[in-house]
Amino acid sequence: MTTLDDLRTTLAGNERLTEDLDRVREKPEAVGGLFPAAGRRYGREPLTDGWTTDEAARALLLAGSPTEEVLNAYRYGDTAEKLAVLKALPLLPIGDDGVPLLEDALRTNDTRLVAAALGPYADRLEPDAWRQAVLKCVFMGVPLAGVHRLHERADAPLKDMLRAFAAEREAAGREVPLDARNLLDETQEA
């Protein structure tokens, strides 16, 4: 997995970011104005491993900020900012303090936020919340391929929920998404 050090190395030549990271070290609340402007200040070009420049810069800004500013960045973030916070969470030294952010994202009806909440940091979600989140993905048409450790975590209660979901869809003459069907078949075999 990409680490903060990887991102630091990749963006070492971005002078504006380097200056801004120094600023945030001296004055943590400055991140409130810099975080939303990341795309305009540092660029949006794709980097390696599925990161873009603005996402990576946002992760580094958060890594240099106290937890309160991480939570504020999400609280006041637009969708791109919230997605960047969710993506950065597993890299940040904040323990379980980011779990309420996942729970917030999972309450939304924005498919991008729901999908982003099920990355590696979702290991910290309680099993009930995680199962509901997976079922919500299926319900909303979010591909399960992006769910971190799906096959390891898919257990009997999730299987029951998926089976009930499939029965309801079939009763209505509606399709059951193929990835959900496959997961059900796979867990039935297990």
Binding site: G32, G33, P36, A37, R40, Y76, D78, A80, E81
Partner: peptide, 10 residues
């Protein structure tokens, strides 16, 4: 609180 929002891309 407006400055936070006036910094947004959108």
């Amino acid at each position: 609180l407006l400055p936070r929002y006036l910094a947004k891309d959108g």
